[in-house]
Amino acid sequence: MNHLTEEQFEDIMQGLLPEPEHLTDCDLCRELLAEKKAIANRMRSAFDSVKPDKRLANNIRMQLTDKAVSEQPQSARRLSNIRFKRMAWPAAAAAVLVMAVILGVYVISPSSAMAARAELVKIHNHNLSTDHEHEFYSEADPVKLAEYFKSKLGFSPSMPITDQGMALRGCCVRHFRGQVVGSYVVDTPQGIMSVIVVTDKPETLGMGGKFECQGRVFWKSSFAKCDMVTVRLGDYSYCAVGEISHEYLTELLSRLMPDTHQ
């Protein structure tokens, strides 16, 4: 009796070959096949428990967003010191989209409109980053944060009254579209939010949906896993960014007073 060959076993395992009659007659080959299948199944189940650290996905997301941002055309970025790299912007955007789908962490529209939103999310990610490469002023006292902003930006942006489980975490001065902008971070019951204060009008930030709430006009959008809502107060646009619902971000921005710039 000729036993099954290694190749036949492999083809049967892959479902390329129907189980031959030999298997009904030969205990040895039948047991061998059962053993191979059992090992394959056990390995598969062993790897089911292997899950990447949340931090890893976050790091990769940050790095890809960094790359996507640095590889967009200069016209969109208005930064003269960023070299235009090898890859064309649409290809870079498409690459982020593909990576995103594989990582399962991104929801991205591959258009140039995402440039500003990508930068906003990047600022938010940097605010959350625990490495101290990025200068972050950890402080919960709004008075001290206001002083910090005033020294760095010449003005202090409006900050929400923090109650109901909300607390200020700190602030940072970052670059957005080649300009120095301020951002602060708020811990909320629904997650961590960055508020980034820019001079650009909401219409130019690639924000999609314009809507009204309590007599004020807001713009909402999304990038990567983050939702964002923008409101215009005086000469500044306040962009709230986080893995938080649009409704909640809107509610938080509604607490900002239009005349509190100092």
């Binding site: 890893l56 990769i60 790095q63 790359k67 290809a91 870079a92 498409a94 690459a95 982020v96």
Partner: peptide, 23 residues
Amino acid sequence: DRDDADDLTQATFLKAFERFESF
């Protein structure tokens, strides 16, 4: 180890991003 696995995953995605045109 897991640290190496993290590094390898990260390096893979960054390389894939750079080489996306070859896909």
